[in-house]
Structure formats: structure tokens, C-alpha cells
């Protein structure tokens, strides 16, 4: 076993140990001059940061009951102003999801079209629904924003643009443009990789090499025409960048900049507000949004208990519940009263 683990550790090391910069430059098509410093600018406008979270509270295999929380925080300068939160229950049922999505699209965005997911995507119904709710929060935040404000969305835009939410994103980008607010999609994780004989994590390697090129300032690099995968659809008209928001931070982030947004100004403002002690190098408003909007394990457990109690009060027996639970859940259940 120890020998097997040693082999696995060697394998992992190949992914994460520093790779030579010359090979990186050669294989990605990136050059040193692609890294450009960001000059943080004085910014006293409002920042809106949108995030979402979901937890399955009842898994019937054929359908999942999900607890979904979305919302946004608002900062003025470095001062937190408020947090807007919405909690929803979504029943992810492959037979009836379309109706639910269509109703939401119509109610929130005024979009009247048939909503269909690829069969391969049906397992991710709750993810799609959460995404939709996050867009709803973003849409509302943009409505509250004023010209010059910064609106930060936790996640990317480029790869969703051609999906079932194309029309939604079009409306969001249009609203951002109309308001005159700077909109950025900042991803906490990224699957971007570059070919080094194996799929090396691109953002992390870029963070290391970029910090050698520009060690004392925030910086960014545009990924247009670079040799990385996956590549966004050609229809994506915005920019994709890797950005390090603070020189002393250890991480860089993938940032999607929608079309018609002044990327330099928006990134400069974001860098100005990424210097908090609490989470250095990450836009602080997103940090707080993540903390305040996440659903904790304790919370979802309590909600699950409350739901089971409600079932019990409606005459549903414990045996019935157990019989319908996903067998994983059944096996994980502890002895004792459930309802």
C-alpha cells in the first residue's frame, strides 16, 4: 500500500511541482510581455458581489429536493453596507424541470422560450437552477447599481454563454452596459490547463510565473489566442484574463470580462478592493458574499430534520421514508428515530 501511495504522490507531484518557465512560454504561446501590471486606482463607488450555494436536503433518487441560497453583498469603499439573501427550495425532477425554469425565466427576465437541457446535463438540474438564481441576483444587483459601480459575479461567463442561459446573459450584459456598471466574473476554481505532457493547472502555473515577471504589483494576462484548454466558443466576445489582484497574495484568478466592459478600469478597481487583511488578494466583497451566502452543514442538517418532522406530522412513516431514500443515504443513516 505504501509503495502504491508513493507512486500516486509522485504522480501528483508532477502536476504541482514548479514547471520551467521556458516550457510554459513555449507550450502556451505566452510571452513575458503578455503580463501587464495593474495600477490600482482610487475607487469610492459601490461594489456588488454575487454568490450562491445549494444543498440537497432530501434525495429520492428520481428527484432531489434542494435548498438554494443566492444573494449579494454591497460595499461602499471598504465598508460593508448590506447583504441581500434569498432562500429557495427547488425540486429537481427531470420530468417537470422545464416548466420550473421557463416560469422563472419569464418571471424574472421576461424571457418566453422553451427550456431544454441536454440529456447529459439532467443530473445537474440543481446546479442549473442555482446558476439561474445567481443570475437573478446579479440582475437585481445591476438594477441597484449606478454608473461606475463594480459588480462582481462569483463564476465565469464564457462557457455559459452558449448554453441554455444565453438569453439571460445577454440581458445581464445589456443591463450592465445600460447602467454603466463594470461587471466581472471571477472564478474561485478553474479547469484551464496547458499541455506539458500532462494537463498542468494553468491558472496556478501562471500565478507563479507571472509573479516572477511582475513581483511587486498586481498584474493580468489576456488569454486570447493562447494555447490552453478548454477554449471558449468563438462566439464569446468578451475577454478572459488571469489576474493577480495583490502582489503579496499567493493566488491568481480567472476573470471573465463581458463585452463592452472597460476591463482595465474594472480590474483596477477590483485590485483596489482586494487588499483586506481578512482575505488578501481576492476581491473582499466576494469573500464576504461567499461567507454569508454559503449553506453550512449544520444548517442543511437542521432543515432536513425539520422537513422529516413535517413528513411525520403528515402521517408519513419512517419506514416509508427509509424505503424511498437513496440507498447511500439509507446506509449512512444512524439508528434511532428519524421522523
Amino acid at each position: 500500500m505504501a509503495r502504491d501511495l508513493a507512486a500516486v504522490a509522485d504522480l501528483i507531484r508532477d502536476y504541482i511541482s514548479p514547471e520551467g518557465a521556458s516550457r510554459y512560454y513555449q507550450n502556451t504561446g505566452i510571452t513575458e510581455s503578455d503580463f501587464s501590471p495593474i495600477l490600482p486606482q482610487k475607487f469610492e463607488g459601490s461594489i456588488f458581489a454575487i454568490d450562491g450555494s445549494n444543498a440537497t436536503i432530501f434525495d429520492l433518487a428520481a428527484a432531489k429536493v434542494n435548498y438554494i441560497r443566492t444573494g449579494y453583498v454591497v460595499y461602499r469603499g471598504t465598508s460593508w453596507q448590506r447583504t441581500e439573501i434569498a432562500n429557495e427550495i427547488f425540486v429537481a425532477d427531470q420530468e417537470s424541470y422545464a416548466q420550473t425554469f421557463e416560469r422563472n425565466l419569464k418571471d424574472i427576465f421576461g424571457i418566453e422560450e422553451t427550456f431544454t437541457l441536454e440529456e447529459t446535463e439532467l443530473d445537474r438540474l440543481s446546479t442549473y437552477f442555482r446558476e439561474l438564481q445567481e443570475y437573478a441576483a446579479l440582475f437585481e444587483a445591476l438594477d441597484r447599481a449606478q454608473e461606475g459601480d463594480l459588480v462582481l459575479y462569483d463564476g465565469g461567463f464564457a462557457f455559459w454563454k452558449e448554453g441554455p442561459f444565453k438569453a439571460v446573459l445577454d440581458q445581464i450584459f445589456e443591463r450592465a452596459e445600460n447602467v454603466g456598471a463594470d461587471l466581472l466574473g471571477i472564478s474561485k476554481s478553474s479547469t484551464f490547463s496547458w499541455n506539458a505532457g500532462l494537463s498542468r493547472p494553468f491558472v496556478q502555473d501562471t500565478a507563479r510565473i507571472g509573479s516572477q515577471v511582475i513581483p511587486d504589483r498586481p498584474w493580468m494576462i489576456d488569454l486570447k489566442d493562447k494555447n490552453i484548454s478548454p477554449r471558449p466558443e468563438s462566439s464569446w466576445k468578451g475577454k478572459i484574463r488571469v489576474v493577480k489582484f495583490h502582489p503579496h497574495a499567493g493566488r491568481a484568478f480567472r476573470v471573465d470580462v463581458p463585452p463592452l466592459i472597460d476591463a482595465d478600469r474594472a480590474l483596477s478597481h477590483a485590485a483596489t478592493r482586494s487588499s483586506s487583511a481578512e482575505c488578501l488578494g481576492y476581491p473582499h466583497a466576494l469573500f464576504r458574499a461567499h461567507r454569508e451566502i454559503r449553506i453550512t452543514d449544520q444548517e442543511s442538517w437542521l432543515l432536513r430534520r425539520a422537513l422529516l418532522d413535517e413528513l411525520g406530522s403528515r402521517g408519513v412513516s419512517e419506514e416509508q421514508v427509509r424505503g424511498f431514500l437513496d440507498y447511500h443515504d439509507f446506509m449512512e443513516m444512524r439508528p434511532g428515530r428519524m421522523l
Partner: peptide
């Protein structure tokens, strides 16, 4: 996000947290 109750979704609650 002001939405009506829907068939397969249920808006449990929404609130604003501020300094108060």
C-alpha cells in the same frame, strides 16, 4: 429577485442583513 411562488420552487424567505 421579487418572484411569485412557483410550482416546483418555493421561495422560503428573503431578507436584508444590515447594521441594524
Amino acid at each position: 429577485m421579487d418572484k411569485e411562488e412557483k410550482t416546483r420552487t418555493l421561495l422560503l424567505d428573503r431578507w436584508t442583513i444590515d447594521g441594524s
